[in-house]
């Protein structure tokens, strides 16, 4: 791959890999290799939230970035907002390939949806031994059909299914890498345009949602996303800002 995006110091392309996040976490232990990109042409043991399996069919783009957010001026307290920031960068990369009638939408905090179906998922993990580094894993459904995956990916959709043609995985990856660099710089500079963007693209806004917080479930209407990335939920007892939790229904 020949990237116009020269900010990466390491690029690894593996024909097959258990989990790109695991390999990227390893690279965090070799600071001179960061920032690094790990791409798997086939990922066999992709992970989602809390060990959930990420289903990656043929034709999907699975990769992880190992980065030091401080390089863009992003503070530790801003790390959680990197989920939305990454989702915006994925939307930047795919939107030019989609008709205007199919806007990419961000499902708080870390999924990209188009036409109500999931096009991409994002998983961020920190490396404990090098507390300044973070791994950003992305799974993007590009070519092929998920309809055949049945129950394994009931809500998923690929770019090919949306557009009726196949797309270059390398070109998508390059576009994402360039977009991520720009969006991360916006976050580091506290550019409020970034929050405007994630509010504009928010899938959950104005919907009644139920959020599972583990110990409790809260329901209410999503009234937008805060500048720090929190989900703003109007509940019967007033507005709450949620920083974690799983969207149980929407």
């Amino acid at each position: 791959m020949n990237f116009a995006t020269a900010w990466l110091r390491t690029i690894e392309v593996h024909p097959e890999l258990g989990s790109t996040n695991d390999r990227a976490l390893e690279l965090c232990g070799q600071p001179d290799k960061l920032p690094a990109l790990v791409v798997a042409e086939r990922q066999t043991a992709g992970r989602g939230r809390q060990g959930a399996v990420w289903f990656a069919p043929e034709g999907s783009l699975t990769f992880s970035l190992a980065v030091r957010p401080a390089a863009w001026g992003i503070s530790l307290a801003q790390w959680p907002a990197l989920s939305l920031t990454t989702a915006i960068a994925v939307a930047d990369a795919v939107q030019p390939l989609l008709p205007a009638s199919m806007p990419a939408q961000i499902k708080w905090p870390n999924d990209v949806f188009v036409t109500g179906r999931k096009l991409a998922g994002i998983l961020l993990e920190s490396a404990p031994t090098t507390s300044d580094a973070l791994v950003i894993g992305v799974g993007l459904n590009v070519n092929g059909a998920l309809a055949s995956a049945g129950e394994q990916a009931p809500l998923g959709v690929t770019l090919e299914e949306l557009t009726g043609r196949t797309h270059s995985i390398d070109a998508l990856l390059e576009n994402f890498i360039a977009a991520f660099d720009q969006r991360a710089a916006q976050l580091g500079a506290s550019d409020e345009e970034l929050a405007v963007e994630w509010n504009r693209q928010s899938l959950l806004t104005n919907r009644d949602v139920i959020i599972d917080l583990g110990a409790e479930r809260v329901s209410g209407r999503c009234v937008g996303l805060a500048n720090n990335g929190a989900l703003r939920l109007a509940t019967a007892s007033g507005e709450r800002a949620l920083h974690s939790g799983a969207v149980a229904s929407w």
Binding site: P80, I122, E125
Partner: peptide, 11 residues
Amino acid sequence: IEAMKVFNEIP
């Protein structure tokens, strides 16, 4: 500790 799907291993 997870916040907005950012999973931080805490030492």
